[in-house]
Amino acid sequence: MVLAVSEAGIELDRTIFYANSGGQPGDTGMIGATPIIDTRKGPEDTILHIPAPGAPLPAVGDRVALTLDWERRHRHMRMHTTLHLLCALLPGIYATGNQIGAEKSRLDFDLPDPPAKEDLTKRLNALIAAAHPTGTRWISGEELDANPSLVRTLSVQPPRGAGRIRLVRIGPEDAPIDLQPCGGTHVANTAEIGRAEISKIENKGKQNRRLHIILTGEKP
Rank of each mutant, 00 (worst) to 15 (best):
K104M: 00
K104T: 11
P148S: 12
P133N: 02
W138K: 15
L85R: 04
T136S: 14
T134L: 07
W70A: 11
H132Q: 15
T153D: 10
N98A: 13
R166P: 03
P159M: 02
E143G: 12
I177S: 09
A102E: 13
P133M: 00
R164T: 04
E143H: 09
G135Q: 04
P114T: 03
G171W: 03
Y94A: 14
A116V: 10
H80I: 05
M77W: 06
A95I: 03
L120R: 01
P115E: 11
L85K: 01
G161T: 13
T153Q: 14
V156R: 15
T67Y: 09
A95T: 13
L120E: 00
P115Q: 10
T81E: 02
P148Y: 07
D119M: 13
Y94F: 13
N147L: 08
V168Q: 06
D113L: 14
G171T: 02
P172N: 12
H74G: 05
E118Q: 14
D69S: 11
L150H: 04
D113T: 15
H76I: 06
G161L: 09
I93L: 01
H76A: 03
P112E: 09
L83A: 08
H80W: 06
G161Q: 14
E118A: 14
I128H: 07
L90D: 01
D108L: 06
R164M: 08
S105F: 03
Q157H: 15
L144F: 09
I100P: 02
D108E: 11
H84Q: 05
A130D: 12
G163L: 01
A102F: 03
V168T: 12
R160N: 08
H76L: 13
L124G: 01
A102P: 11
N147P: 09
A95E: 09
A130E: 11
H74A: 03
L107G: 01
R137P: 00
L111Y: 04
M77G: 06
L144Q: 08
G161C: 08
I170P: 03
S140T: 15
R75N: 09
P176C: 09
Q99D: 13
C87I: 05
R78F: 01
E118L: 11
P115L: 10
L89M: 06
G135K: 00
M77T: 08
L127A: 07
K122I: 00
E143V: 09
H74C: 03
V151N: 13
V156G: 02
R166D: 03
D119H: 15
T96N: 08
D69Y: 10
H74K: 11
D110Q: 14
E143C: 08
Q99K: 15
A146Y: 02
H84A: 00
A175T: 12
R137D: 10
P158L: 11
P172Q: 11
R78A: 02
H132T: 08
T121K: 10
G97R: 11
P158S: 12
L107W: 00
H76M: 10
R75D: 00
S140Q: 05
V168C: 03
A131R: 15
E71Y: 10
P133I: 02
T121E: 05
A146D: 11
Q157E: 13
P172W: 02
V64W: 00
C87T: 10
A88C: 07
R137V: 03
R106E: 02
L68M: 06
T136P: 07
I170W: 04
R152K: 15
Y94W: 13
I93W: 02
I93E: 07
G97A: 14
L144Y: 10
P176D: 01
E173K: 15
L66N: 04
P148L: 07
T153S: 14
